[in-house]
């Protein structure tokens, strides 16, 4: 563990805000490297992940393009290539690489990508659900009871194996639900993207947008809820 201080951070951030190279103070035109002195520049905190990868802000993206861009930027930022450079450049390389890795992880996964984009477009999407979604209420309640019974049972007993069989069936069922929700999300993602592509500012478009947004939010939080239940179930029976 190393305690580190980075007292030059603030100065750099200030300069970035003015779009100036931290090193030669010239006005920045290049994307991540200064045109004049070719020094690497810290990626601005305000840059969203889509812009960082040169991708449109859409829910359905070309993952091949994403991967190619990730590899390209990794080659540009990775600390391996800054071993002989100044401390300031090494520190920027480290920060940029860490940011790039987070961005890639977020955009690579369709669900995380959706949560991130909807947060950008419309504020935080993830309602933390503490009670089961309405259409699953009965089922989940029963499942919780079975889980409790199983936890208290003697694992070698016949009762336990009956319960286990029931839990296995519940698991298959819930995983099926999860896949359903993901398929419905995919449809909503396409509809959202089409709407964004049209870019209409009409009342009708606004209503439709809010409608899709609400549906996506509901499914996303239900899906998280079901996923946690499944994880809990798997942890208990294995």
């Amino acid at each position: 563990m190393n305690g580190h201080t980075h007292n030059t951070d603030d100065r750099r951030e200030l300069q970035m805000a003015r779009s100036m190279c931290w090193h030669c103070q010239s006005e920045m035109a290049g994307e991540y490297f200064c045109d004049r002195c070719v020094k690497v520049q810290p990626v601005s905190k305000d840059l969203d992940y889509f812009t960082c990868f040169g991708l449109p802000r859409r829910l359905v993206i070309d993952t091949q393009v994403l991967e190619a861009k990730f590899y390209e930027l990794s080659r540009a930022f990775h600390p391996d290539f800054y071993q002989n450079k100044s401390d300031a450049e090494q520190s920027i390389s480290l920060g940029n690489s860490a940011m790039l890795n987070t961005a890639y992880r977020t955009l690579r996964d369709p669900i995380q990508r959706a949560e991130y984009l909807l947060d950008l477009e419309a504020g935080a999407v993830k309602d933390i659900r503490t009670s089961p979604p309405a259409d699953l209420f009965e089922e989940i309640l029963e499942l919780q009871e079975t889980l409790d019974e199983f936890r208290e049972s003697n694992r070698a007993s016949e009762q336990a194996s009956t319960l286990r069989a029931k839990l296995d069936a519940d698991r298959t069922n819930l995983e099926e639900r999860q896949r359903d929700m993901e398929a419905r999300l995919q449809q909503l993602f396409s509809r959202w993207d089409t709407l964004q592509d049209r870019g209409e500012a009409t009342e009708q478009a606004r209503t439709e947008r809010n409608h899709i947004l609400k549906d996506m939010r509901d499914i996303l939080s239900n899906r998280t809820y079901v996923k946690n239940i499944v994880n809990d179930l798997v942890a208990t029976i294995s």
Binding site: M1, N2, G3, H4, T5, H78, P79, D80, L94, S97
Partner: peptide, 10 residues
């Protein structure tokens, strides 16, 4: 966590 897998705290 740096490229060595070692933690730094700021």
């Amino acid at each position: 966590i740096d490229a060595n897998g070692i933690l730094n705290v700021m």
